[in-house]
Write a protein that binds this DNA or RNA. Sequence first.
DNA 1: GATAGTAATTACCTATAAGTAAGTAGTTAC
DNA 2: GTAACTACTTACTTATAGGTAATTACTATC
Lengths: 122, 122
Amino acid sequence: MNQKNNVCKYNLMIIRDTLEVIQGKWRIPIIIALTYGEKRFGEIKRDITDISPKMLSQELKALEENKIIIRTLHDTMPISVEYSLTPLGVSMTEMLDEIFNWGVHFRKEIVQSEPVSLQESV
Amino acid sequence: MNQKNNVCKYNLMIIRDTLEVIQGKWRIPIIIALTYGEKRFGEIKRDITDISPKMLSQELKALEENKIIIRTLHDTMPISVEYSLTPLGVSMTEMLDEIFNWGVHFRKEIVQSEPVSLQESV
DNA sequence: GATAGTAATTACCTATAAGTAAGTAGTTAC
DNA sequence: GTAACTACTTACTTATAGGTAATTACTATC
């Protein structure tokens, strides 16, 4: 029982470090947008229609600091900036898939029991 | 390309509904604590040492409203209250496992590159 | 040269999450 | 009867997340 308890506590510690990286309204959506290939600032903004440039800029910076994404400056005319996942970012795929899968399951369950308005817009 | 884009946007919508359920510092830790079996208020508090009774009470209530956990009042003397996962809560297991797995991977990567203090206490 | 697009930054404000501290109502042990 | 335990609740405060609006610097198009 004490052994089981320590395992539980160790796992909770790992989880809390992880949550700090993926916490917030925008980080996971941004990462998911980038799993569809490298994108420019404006492209991500168009995918996540209601994010403000301030939040996008801020969260991209945080994800870069956590080595989840890389920012590449292409020396074209006009200059373009592209964001893409690092190997560490790509390694999130299974996790993101499972979050998505559970989301689908959850939506099914909730829509069945109480037809409350989740986000309807696509 | 437009097709791909709509798929991306639909997926983002699912994800945002999901994030609302699991968002915050305490919900995932609480759910994980309960994957080890049903627990009483005080037991959860002992697992998650730094949660305040206010936050625990508040988050348990939110999880109950989202049908992730159930609160059972045992008519013992003295009365005891037990929290356990619903089938919907149990269905989060794969997702939580993947979050944990990525957390382990992330910790390994970060500890290698820069030995910065993550949470050390167990 | 005016207008629009890209990739942001800055200042300011509000809303929400979380923390602190104390209190309550019941029970049990000494 | 008083001290401690369980399961909370309430009031208050602080911290953080997020939103709004305006601005910047550069290029391209009309």
